[in-house]
Simulated assay, not measured.
Amino acid sequence: MDTKVRRGRQPVDVLIVDDDGAARQQVRTTLHDCTDIQVAAETANAAEALEVLETVAADVALIGLTGTRRDVLETCRRITAHGSRPRAIMMATRTTPAAAVRAFDMGCHGFCRYGAGADALRIAIHSAHRGDGFLCPDVGRPIIDRYLKRISEGAQQRGSLTRRQREVLRMVAHGWRTKEIANALGLSIKTVESHRAAIMRRLGVSRVVELVHEAGRLGLGPPST
């Protein structure tokens, strides 16, 4: 990969935050030949990082997940709350979907594995610098698989509505009130309410607006927008 700096473009300034000196050295070594990225500073904790950011205009902060979970999450919170810069990337020795979710919940723009290599780290840094997200492939694939499984299971559940449930759902989506549905179908109000509750559980929704949206997706009501 060509790591030469494009003419007229400044390198991305990186701040490394990790209480493990060996881990910081590993990152510096990995980025050594990436001339479009430069390590502007490094610190051992959030307090030092915030102090450094008063004088160093770092674009991206690499935050190591080698300390205690509470300290790392606090570091992420304090740095991402600092402003639009730096954008944060959490780095971990053990990558799991749960850890990645926590990182993005804390405002990080990326989640990367230690030892991922210069190419992957370089892509992560430039993605965060642009404001995009980056997720290392070894944890990204399980998250995608889990998401696709939920979609598949949801489709199966939607397709398993009974004829009566689909009828009630169509009428709800078109604005019929519970009493009107009961009168039209010759049911009690309590039975209609039971059908609607069962439909909402089956579709995994909790509000009527979501129910109408799902009805549109199933071709049973106004199309979703």
Rank of each mutant, 00 (worst) to 15 (best):
V12H: 01
I63C: 11
R70I: 15
H32V: 14
A61W: 07
G131D: 07
T80P: 00
S160I: 13
H195F: 10
M91S: 03
R150W: 08
C136E: 09
T75S: 14
L135E: 00
D33T: 14
R141T: 13
E54W: 06
G64I: 02
A197M: 07
R158I: 14
D119H: 11
G204F: 04
V56L: 04
L148C: 12
T35K: 13
I199P: 03
I79P: 10
E54R: 12
R196S: 04
Q10N: 08
I143F: 05
R70M: 15
P223H: 03
G110Q: 03
V192R: 00
Q25R: 13
R141L: 14
A173W: 07
L53H: 00
R9V: 15
D105F: 04
G159E: 07
V209L: 07
E51N: 13
S188K: 10
D145E: 12
R94T: 15
S194N: 15
G159Q: 11
D119R: 05
G64E: 02
L187F: 15
A22C: 03
D13I: 06
L121D: 04
R69S: 06
N45H: 15
S206K: 10
Q26Y: 05
G117R: 01
R77D: 09
S224C: 05
S84E: 13
Q25W: 08
T96V: 08
I143L: 11
I143N: 00
R113V: 12
H174A: 10
H195C: 03
A61G: 08
C136D: 03
S152L: 09
A118P: 02
A49E: 06
D19V: 08
Q10T: 12
L135D: 00
A182V: 02
D33H: 14
T43A: 04
A22G: 06
I181D: 01
V172T: 14
L218E: 08
S206R: 08
G115Y: 05
E54N: 11
A57G: 09
R87H: 02
G110F: 08
G64L: 04
G64H: 02
R69N: 07
H126Q: 09
A92L: 02
V27H: 03
D33E: 15
R102A: 08
S84V: 10
E54L: 13
G83M: 06
R28N: 02
F134N: 02
T162G: 15
R87M: 01
A184T: 15
R196L: 11
H195K: 03
R78C: 06
T162M: 13
R78T: 09
C34E: 05
L218K: 13
T68E: 14
A57M: 12
K4F: 11
A198L: 10
R201D: 01
G133I: 15
L73V: 07
N183V: 01
D18L: 10
G110N: 03
L135C: 04
A103F: 01
R158K: 14
L220T: 07
K4A: 12
L211D: 00
A40I: 11
I16M: 11
K149Y: 11
L135S: 02
A173C: 12
E48V: 02
T162L: 12
V17G: 11
G133M: 14
P223K: 06
Q156I: 11
V168F: 04
A88E: 02
L211Y: 02
H213F: 04
V168W: 00
D132G: 04
L185W: 06
S160P: 10
D105K: 08
E210G: 01
R102N: 06
P222V: 10
R177K: 14
N45V: 13
